[in-house]
Nucleic acid binder design. Structure first.
Length: 815
RNA sequence: GCCGUGGUGGCGGAAUUGGUAGACGCGCUGGAUUUAGGAUCCAGUCUCCUCUGGAGGUGCAGGUUCGAUUCCUGUCCGCGGCACCA
């Protein structure tokens, strides 16, 4: 191993140099154009970094370094997302306070990240659990509250009576608690909600303004789930009230043969007959145990109970039975639907199971076998009011929808409506390790926000973090903290004991990086105007919907209040794919396939790890780790080093005297072009293979001209910065190459005077030939047809078509 | 189930305004060097066949085209998300 290149010396040396010289400190305000490149900061767990983290971090680091060399003022920060479940669970199990464990874990993450030589401006490091940070998270919550976007509601949670605590979905497996296997029930509990639905239309519309992958935009659009239709009012004679349903298909009103309410619908009790009471209540209890996912999408078999009463169909006066079923969700629409089994698949399945009538109002399908749901095909039938004054018969469903809404509005039986699938954000957690919600309650149910000057509201230090047994947060155990007495009035308040979800801190961290030490404000508006928006945001695809939607929502609220100057926080977004274990499975402790970057750095060095992570394949794709693959990259860096640095530690095979030959110039400039273009398109893997090709070429030369080699070193430097800095220094430069100008290619060296053409006969490759680049089409054809192998194929046949693709191929079609 | 995404040699992958499939790397085979092993260097390496040539080949089945990994239809399988993991 003696002849391996000395990464153990080189890497710490340059990390120390960058640190001491603050090489990567980002200046607020500059003549240069700014570039804000952001990583999704890591969620801190006890497991430390795994090789999946550095994938995105390496990609952004390469681009950050590249952009500096292109003359940009680059902001590239890092911080820690450190509230959340793991530290709290650890505390419950071991008695170690979450803040202690979190501090240790952060130290590990930081050491690991720094060992990879990323060019972060460490003066901007942030930590969501730092009270100087979460003071401003709480401040934003107060802004949301003042704007009426935070409210309390009764919402079901996963309640585990045996553990005396509320569980996260993740902690519930098949209706049992992960720890102990105790039964878990859905229990309504008072919760803080954020009214993200008030921003649904803007969250949807402004997706057009950001440069994100179409697939991510599509997922967000589907998540928001805008649908247009009508609210229709059905009279319920027994209670002399209306129940409003939302439907996207008001044209099928004449086909509504029954109505379904969500089991939790507030009117269920009042419209249930005595005979049905028992069955309805049993069903309600049962439905309460299921999650929405179990109730709707995963439920193959429909269930439900008849309430015993009827509703009046507003278009024809018919009495239709009212059922309850868990495929109707209280959280979507009005919690009630009109069921049109002939033209809705779910209603069809339900009607078949409970033998309810199926009435065709759009002809064109076969409703004896399945629901017919087309709206551009088919013709409305049986759709006339009893008095004959209104009919949509004969129309296409898509035309009938609008006409029916007009009629409903005129008759005051309904109106146009837009519904979103997006639900308000359940914002409270019954946990200790989160930001305290800065709210006081009085005995009469009054809610009082703290004033800005009371912030931060810090977490009380608890001797032991343990469940309260009531479902309240462990904070409720901190009696003195919870009880607040107004010094002026003597009035007693109770602090909110719920805390914020982990998402809160990550909803605005990109703003805190702009001004991390400001204790007067979350950030300085001038700095915000200079740096925002984030020019490139890189992180895991698993955040495609939730984190990105929540952060966009907060940003828009801050925009409305004038605290930020851009409508959207993240102008460009890239999602990196998962790095899988060597066995092709997701890395996890239980599978034993986790690769620890510490081991890789020790064995091969940071540059090798960085290069390998990028060489594995396209950034966005999931790809398996390979120990053999990383050795290949290590060999490449070794070859670079050993070819140019002698045993005696002197530069070799580099000449000041010779000029580059044509072949070298062409390879060199092709490499500048390819690497530059690949960096622009984030195709890191192919950029690296091009660098390998150039190095392979260099190694065939007696000596490489110094200027050519320097260009190679600069091109390599964003990928393998330690090695590049070391070579740069040995080439006689006294300062870092981090701000050297990025090489530019010259088109003239790429020119070749001969070009290779492929010759196909009937689309099959038969031969190739070389010809001058300025050859005419006729010359090319003539040459192609004169080739021995080609003559064999066209002899005695008629050439019916001759295709010449410039600079590529000739195809002769013969009969 | 719904939404999104992917499927190319033994492996990771390359090549798409439709134009020579398999760049680069790994692995493997042979050779050089070495007391030996490792490391390093050189050459070869999609599969098959009747081998100076030819046939097949990009999950599967079709279609469009002079020509399809690329476009279209259908289908199978893997992965990510599904609102309290983040």
């Amino acid at each position: 191993m003696a002849d391996k290149y000395p990464h153990h010396q080189i890497e710490p040396k340059w990390q120390q140099y960058w640190d001491e010289n603050k090489t990567f400190k980002a200046a607020d305000f500059s003549e240069k154009p700014k570039y804000y490149i952001l990583d999704m900061f890591p969620f801190i767990s006890g497991a430390g970094l795994h090789v999946g983290h550095p994938e995105g971090y390496t990609a952004t680091d390469i681009l950050a370094r590249y952009m500096r060399m292109r003359g940009f003022n680059v902001l590239h920060p890092m911080g820690w997302d450190a509230f959340g479940l793991p530290a709290e669970q650890y505390a419950i199990e071991t008695g170690v306070h979450p803040s202690k464990k979190t501090t240790e874990n952060i130290a590990t993450f930081k050491r690991q990240i720094q060992s990879l030589g990323f060019s972060y401006d460490w003066d901007r490091e942030i930590n969501t659990t730092d009270e100087k940070y979460y003071k401003w998270t709480q401040w934003i919550f107060l802004k949301l509250f003042e704007k009426g976007l935070a409210y309390e509601a009764e919402v079901p949670v996963n309640w585990c009576p045996a553990l005396g605590t509320v569980l996260a979905n993740e902690e519930v497996i098949d209706g049992k608690s992960e720890r102990g296997g105790h039964p878990v029930v859905r229990k309504p509990m008072r919760q803080w909600m954020l009214k993200i639905t008030a921003y649904a239309d803007r969250l949807l519309a402004d997706l057009d303004e950001v440069e994100w992958p179409d697939s991510i935009k599509e997922m967000q659009r589907n998540w928001i789930g805008r649908s247009e239709g009508a609210n229709v009012h059905f009279n319920i004679p027994v209670i002399e009230k209306n129940i409003t349903v939302f439907t996207t298909r008001p044209d099928t009103l004449w086909g509504a043969t029954y109505m379904v309410l969500a089991p939790e619908h507030p009117l269920v009790n009042s419209i249930t007959t005595t005979e049905q009471k028992e069955a309805v209540q049993a069903y309600q209890n049962q439905a309460g145990l299921k999650s929405d996912l179990d109730r709707t999408d995963l439920a193959k078999e429909k269930t439900g109970v008849f309430t015993g009463h009827y509703a009046t169909n507003p278009v024809n006066g018919e009495q239709i039975p009212i059922w309850i079923s868990d495929y109707v969700l209280m959280s979507y629409g009005t919690g009630a639907i009109m069921a049109v089994p002939a033209h809705d698949e779910r209603d069809y399945a339900f009607a078949k199971k409970f033998k309810l009538p199926i009435m065709e109002v759009v002809s064109g399908g076969d409703i004896s076998t399945e629901a017919f749901t087309e709206i551009e095909e088919g013709v409305m039938v049986n759709s006339t009011t009893p008095d004959g004054t209104f009919s949509i018969n004969g129309l296409k469903p898509s035309q009938a929808i609008g006409k029916t809404i007009e009629w409903l509005e005129a008759e005051r039986k309904g109106e146009y409506a837009v519904q979103y699938r997006l639900r308000d954000w359940l914002f409270s957690r019954q946990r200790y390790w989160g930001e305290p919600i800065p709210i006081l309650h009085d005995e009469d149910g009054g809610v009082f926000p703290l004033s800005d000057s009371d912030l931060p509201l810090t977490l009380p230090v608890l001797e032991k973090i343990k469940p309260t047994g009531t479902g309240e947060s462990p904070l409720a155990n901190a009696k003195e903290w919870v009880r607040v007495v107004d010094p002026d009035t003597g009035k007693v308040y109770r602090r909110e004991t719920n805390t914020m979800p982990q998402w809160a801190g990550s909803c605005w961290y990109y703003l805190r990086y702009l001004d991390p030490d400001n204790d007067k404000a979350g950030w300085d508006p001038e700095k915000e105007k200079y740096w925002m928006p984030v020019d490139l945001y890189v992180g895991g695809a698993e955040h495609a919907v939730l984190h990105l939607l929540y952060a966009r929502f907060w940003h828009k609220v801050l925009y409305d209040l004038g605290y930020v100057s851009t409508k959207e926080p993240f102008q460009r977004l890239i999602n990196q794919g998962l790095i899988l274990g060597e066995d092709g499975d997701k890395m996890s402790k239980s599978r034993g396939n986790v690769i620890n970057p510490d081991d890789v750095v020790r064995e091969y060095g940071a540059d090798t790890l960085r290069l390998y992570e990028m060489f594995m394949g396209p950034l966005e794709r999931a790809k398996p780790w390979s120990t053999k693959g990383i050795e290949g990259i290590f060999r490449f860096l070794n070859r670079v080093w050993r070819h140019f640095v002698s045993e005696g530690d002197q530069l070799q095979h580099i000449s000041n005297k010779i000029a580059p030959d044509q072949g070298t110039l062409r390879q060199l400039h092709a490499t500048i072009k390819k690497v530059t273009e690949d960096l622009e398109s984030k195709s890191f893997n192919t950029a690296i293979s091009q660098l390998m090709i150039l190095n392979n070429h260099f190694r065939t030369l007696e000596a490489v001209p110094r200027e050519s080699f320097e260009i190679f070193v600069l091109l390599l430097s964003p990928f393998a910065p330690h090695l590049a800095e070391e070579l740069w220094e040995r080439l006689g430069h006294s300062t870092t190459l981090a701000y050297e100008a990025w090489p530019e290619y010259d088109q003239q060296y790429l020119f070749e005077n001969m070009i290779r053409f492929a010759v196909q006969v009937n689309g099959k490759l038969r031969d190739t030939f070389d010809i001058s680049t300025d050859a005419t089409k006729d010359e090319i054809l003539q040459k192609a047809k004169s080739l021995e192998k080609i003559i064999k194929y066209i002899e005695g046949k008629t050439v019916v078509k001759e295709i010449v693709v410039p600079k590529k191929l000739v195809n002769l079609v013969v009969k």
